[in-house]
Design a protein around this nucleic acid. Structure first.
Lengths: 314, 314
DNA sequence: CTGTTAGCGCGTTCAG
DNA sequence: CTGAACGCGCTAACAG
């Protein structure tokens, strides 16, 4: 008991006894068992469960870093799982996290159903969604200004005089894919520029698929003079294809707007406008939302934070 | 008790009772408390502590992914911490991990002392080091073939006729920085090409510093005709500087060899040879080493796995 | 200021 | 096949 009190800060323990305790702790290599500590109901475990879709994507690595930083500032540790866009894996991770008594959950949901995330299934474990929403689930959420960013990016192409603007993006079941396409459509509609479905490609989840889509786009009868790419993977694919054609001597020189930054964008063979944002900040924001919930500092209803994006011209 | 038995597989429980249990579990949203489960000594917690230096680096994101994958295959979860190359933070993370009863530790050590990693401090928690070694600590380790890769990369430049080859790398206290420089030196020595310290820069930890170093290198009296870059961060910095000079009209066209891959390397204004390797595989290998130790399948002594690298010419 | 009692949720062990 | 007793390490609550 005296040991417990000492390690808990030393209230009501004689200083000399505290010292003897600390000495023994060092000597024996004693570590307090954190799991036993949180056995008693109501005691926090100090753990936060984090499930993201793809750690190999630098975007999510930065996101995880942001979460980890804020968690550390609050003396918490994170349990990390990778879902790989797999519903079943997400469900499994969430139940395991709950079984391990996490104090809260931060999730980049894979676009499935919401059954396993309902409050009644989660008990009183607070949940924060990041990057994407889950239909029918009204909880704290951190998003990017996808629609606004895509809208402004597309507008910049229209302002430059382009009227044939191709689109490359995620499949529409992906939340961000849908939103970014909406921003593109809104800008086009607003300016009365028709959208040609033959140069809109919305099914590419990796660089290889994006390269193929770009190929098809430039092989079309009336190829676009500009491309809006809705994410990093599609941008890399598009530029890879454009670069190949330029090396092969094709007189091709489309303008590119990319949602998501990438390194050395200034050295590309065509000018690239970047819609930039900070994944680490998104992670920090998600964690901040969660901890305000845990501290009881939060307001009642579910909150949504939408982080701004910035546009960087070449 | 019957519930416990049912959830443990159902041995010695009547099938109809099992069904009623499962039904109630679903109805009540019951989750077995994994922490209480591992309270009894000798019971594994199913947790692995992972500490890496910088999650924002895609290399370590991939590494973490590899570890997570193998851990998941073994029914384990990972506790993830970011050290940011900070000794104190690493010590703190390790003790917390032990307090949480992790079954094992995987660590990309920050180059400090080894006191807190000694077996007597760790109890019987097995430790695997990745990417780097800790002086005086003889444990299971997964490394890349840094020396060999740097050696072969440098040779390829010498074979192409270059005799003034600059070097950009990490500070020498970083284990991989030291090893990659050794490979460079070995190749130069072997061919009798003198190393000019005025074009050897070994102190750059980020892109900005690398850009400055490249600037100094090309501003030197007798600038190099080729550059060996010891890691991704230095490569990006070097190419950024080279690209800027080419755009400004300088008649500059150095060959570049880069330890670490990066996207769109084929579109660079100068040809880039890449020494490529798989961080995810490194993570998988580290986890495999750890679990073989946990299963008791491992041999006695500490093992070192050195993963090969591949050289990709432009 | 220090020690005792009790109970958190689980699984091992032993009785029925 | 099912249940009761016990103890894992810890701390809130209550003596002393």
């Amino acid at each position: 008991m005296t040991v417990s009190r000492t390690l808990a800060g030393g209230r009501n323990v004689r200083p000399d006894v505290q010292e003897r305790v600390m000495e023994a702790v060092k000597e024996l290599g004693y570590y307090r068992n954190e799991n036993a500590r949180s056995l008693r109901p109501g005691q926090p475990s100090g753990l936060v469960g984090v499930a993201i879709t793809n750690l190999a994507n630098p975007y999510y690595g930065n996101f995880a870093l942001g979460v980890e930083e804020v968690a550390a500032e609050h003396g918490r540790r994170i349990l990390l799982g990778n879902t790989g866009e797999d519903d079943a894996r997400e469900r499994q991770l969430v139940s395991d996290f709950i079984g391990r008594q996490v104090d809260g959950l931060i999730l980049v949901p894979t676009s499935g159903d919401a059954e396993h995330l309902r409050p009644e299934r989660l008990g009183d474990v607070p949940l924060v969604l990041a990057s994407r929403r889950v239909p029918g689930l009204d909880v704290d959420t951190v998003l990017l200004d996808d629609v606004g960013g895509a809208y402004r990016g597309t507008l910049s192409l229209l302002d430059a005089g382009h009227t044939r603007i191709g689109f490359l993006g995620n499949r529409s079941s992906v939340f961000t894919g849908e939103r970014r396409c909406r921003g593109y459509e809104r800008a086009m509609l607003e300016r009365g520029v028709p959208i040609d479905p033959r140069i809109v490609f919305r099914d590419q989840q990796d660089v290889a698929a994006a390269t193929r889509a770009a190929k098809a786009m430039f092989d079309a009868a009336d190829p676009p003079t500009a491309v809006f790419s809705a994410n990093n993977r599609n941008t890399i694919g598009a530029i890879r294809e454009i670069g190949r054609r330029i090396r092969d001597g094709e007189p091709l020189h489309p303008a590119v707007v990319s949602f998501d930054d990438f390194e050395l964008s200034e050295l590309m063979p065509v000018p690239v406008t970047v819609i930039d944002h900070d994944a680490r900040l998104l992670g920090r924001e998600a964690a901040t939302l969660l901890f305000s919930r845990l501290d009881g500092t939060a307001e009642d209803g579910p909150r949504t934070v939408e982080l701004p994006v910035s546009i960087e011209f070449p």
